[in-house]
């Protein structure tokens, strides 16, 4: 039994996981923020349909989502044929493919906290900003973002941590390729399959500590401030 320590293979997987989670989080905020804003404000039937669609990954088994993405984005799938015809190639088994899959899979974890904090914001603050001649972007950056900071923070922590912990989708979509799609959770799976249980425990323990600490930090941070609302003392 060799000395038990985190080797270059593991660092490769850890680095890849951090990169995936960071890139995914950026994409999640770019897509999720306007989406959550719309869902929080709109009363149309379309909004409830979209809201339900966003929540689907919470219910669907990851391997099922992974399988459909594999087929849909693969060379025979409609989306795969489209990406191939415009010269992008196909997404499965690539880092970009993992970003797409992780974005879909983590979307509810970003949209839902944002949506509820936007909904709690109410109209008065926005109207006040408008009477002071703040433009929409100005209002968003200087009124909405500061008031909804706990929502943004929850979304960031949950989105990031959930991407780090994802297994089923990335195993199916990514193909477990070292250095490209072999993220930490899959590295753990490989160690288990190779009967390297001590090593698997080491990596899994690290992942557990990371998840716990990030959630705990979120709790502390959010407890320290009043909930975002129109009449909050910090408004």
């Amino acid at each position: 039994m060799p000395e038990l320590k985190i080797g270059p293979e593991d660092w490769l997987a850890i680095g890849l996981t951090a990169r995936l989670a960071a890139v995914t989080l950026v994409v999640l905020f770019v897509i999720g923020t306007p989406l959550a804003w719309w869902l929080a404000r709109s009363r149309s039937a379309a909004a409830s349909v979209v809201s339900a669609l966003v929540a689907v990954p919470l219910v669907l088994p990851p391997t099922v989502l992974g399988f459909y993405l594999l087929v849909l984005l693969g060379p025979q799938g409609p989306v795969g044929r489209l990406t191939e015809s415009i010269g992008l190639g196909t997404l499965p088994f690539t880092f970009a493919g993992l970003v797409v899959a992780s974005t879909l899979f983590s979307l509810p974890f970003v949209v839902q906290p944002l949506q509820s904090s936007f909904a709690a914001l109410g109209e008065r603050m926005l109207e006040a900003a408008a009477t002071l001649r703040a433009g929409p972007l100005d209002t968003f950056l200087h009124v909405v973002v500061p008031l909804c900071r706990p929502g943004f923070l929850s979304a960031a922590v949950l989105g990031f941590a959930h991407t780090v912990g994802e297994f089923g989708v990335v195993l199916m979509m990514g193909g477990n390729i070292p250095g490209e799609t072999q993220v930490l959770s899959i590295a753990i799976y490989n160690r288990v399959e190779a009967f390297e249980y001590d090593h698997a425990h080491l990596l899994a323990g690290g992942l557990l500590v990371f998840s716990f600490v990030s959630l705990l930090a979120l709790q502390w941070f959010n407890r320290g401030r009043a909930p975002a609302g129109i009449s909050g003392a910090d408004a």
Binding site: L70, V71, G74, Q76, G80, T90, F93, G175
Partner: peptide, 8 residues
């Protein structure tokens, strides 16, 4: 499933 869908 992966091979049928273009795995490298």
């Amino acid at each position: 499933a992966q091979i049928r869908n273009g795995a490298p």
